[in-house]
């Protein structure tokens, strides 16, 4: 077991994953078309097609997720990082295996899209909301395919770390000491961290639930029907519990992993605080939904909350910071 087996698994995933993601794209495009037709023509036929497309795309997302999980298991089984004896005083373990979570790098958006599809199936009887959600999910799938495809060059950062490690090992390069130290930090505080396995997925599940809150708020604004508020609230409750607990779980992780690094008031943290207080404001405002024009304020807040959610997600890619992939 070793590097060659790992590379084989990676190639196999690319081969298997490419058709899966392509089918997801095609089905999602149809899903988007049927959603628009549902909105324009109010025909039950289009709605039935939309639901069928949604079932198929959700199923495909799950199959793709299983293949991704398989690659992660292969990485764990094949890649063994044995630290040089000279580093044993600094590193408390002799070797490490990478237990990479399934929501890192280009897999993040895929995981969110998959959860969103699964959540949306729980409101499949609401034709109006489903039409809007169908469009949102189509945009999601398009974005996954073109900008965050987990099957095209799978896990590029993990791959470059593994490749550099084996290259240094085979060449006897002295840089291996520094590399081993860096890898130990990455494996211990990032990939294998309990927080990495709990903090992000809770947030992505929250985001998936809050998409439905957003769609229901849009309808509340246009249809002025209290029923939409009830739907929005029922999903906001799930989302808020996961969002709050998920966000809080990031704190001890930051204390442990980043220690003295500059992370407080990092843009992603500021964005998360903004998003959380806006959702708290939304939940407060809805208490008096029947009073005056509060329903309108609540609906606008629900929409604003979702805009802040998307903005917070994108911050990783547009503003520098400790959470970000872009640096000044």
């Amino acid at each position: 077991m070793g590097y060659a087996e790992y590379l084989g698994a990676r190639e196999f995933l690319e081969m298997v994953g490419r058709p899966i993601i392509t089918y997801i794209l095609i089905i999602s495009l149809f899903q988007g078309i049927f959603s628009i037709l549902c909105l324009l023509r109010k025909d039950n036929r289009y709605f039935d097609y939309l639901i069928k497309c949604l079932y198929i795309s959700t199923g495909l997302y799950f199959i793709g997720f299983l293949t991704l999980a398989w690659l992660h298991i292969q990485i764990y089984n094949t890649v063994l990082i044995e630290y040089p004896a000279a580093l044993r005083q600094m590193i408390p373990v002799e070797n490490s295996r990478i237990a990479a979570p399934l929501w890192i790098e280009s897999e993040k958006l895929y995981f969110w899209a998959m959860c969103a599809c699964a959540f949306s199936l729980t409101v499949k009887k609401r034709k109006d909301i489903m039409a809007l959600i169908g469009i949102i999910l189509s945009i999601f799938s398009l974005t996954v395919y073109f900008f965050s495809n987990p099957f095209k060059d799978p896990l590029p950062i993990v791959n470059s770390e593994i490749t550099r490690w084996y290259a240094a090992l085979s060449s006897g390069d002295m840089g291996i000491f520094q590399l081993a130290g860096t890898l130990y930090g990455r494996v211990t505080y990032y990939y294998n961290s309990t927080y990495m396995w709990t903090h992000p997925p809770m947030l992505f599940l929250a985001y998936a639930s809050l998409i439905i809150t957003f769609a229901a708020c849009v309808y509340m604004l246009f249809k002025k029907d209290k029923l939409y508020e009830e739907i929005a609230y029922s999903y906001a409750k799930i989302g808020y519990i996961l969002l709050t607990t998920g966000m809080l779980m990031g704190y001890p992780w930051a204390v442990e992993a980043w220690k003295d690094s500059a992370w407080w008031w990092d843009p992603k943290i500021s964005g998360s605080i903004m998003m959380w207080v806006l959702y708290s404001a939304y939940l407060h405002s809805r208490i008096y939904i029947s009073k005056g024009k509060m329903w309108r304020t609540t609906a606008y807040l629900g929409i604003l909350c979702f805009a802040s959610l998307v903005f917070t997600y994108l911050l990783t890619y547009i503003v520098p910071g400790i959470h970000s992939v872009v640096q000044p």
């Binding site: 843009p267 605080i273 806006l278 407060h284 503003v319």
Partner: peptide, 17 residues
Amino acid sequence: ILFMIGAVSLYGITYYN
């Protein structure tokens, strides 16, 4: 008040950038 805390956070993001 919650909305204002959100506005402070938004200012933080902009100023950090």
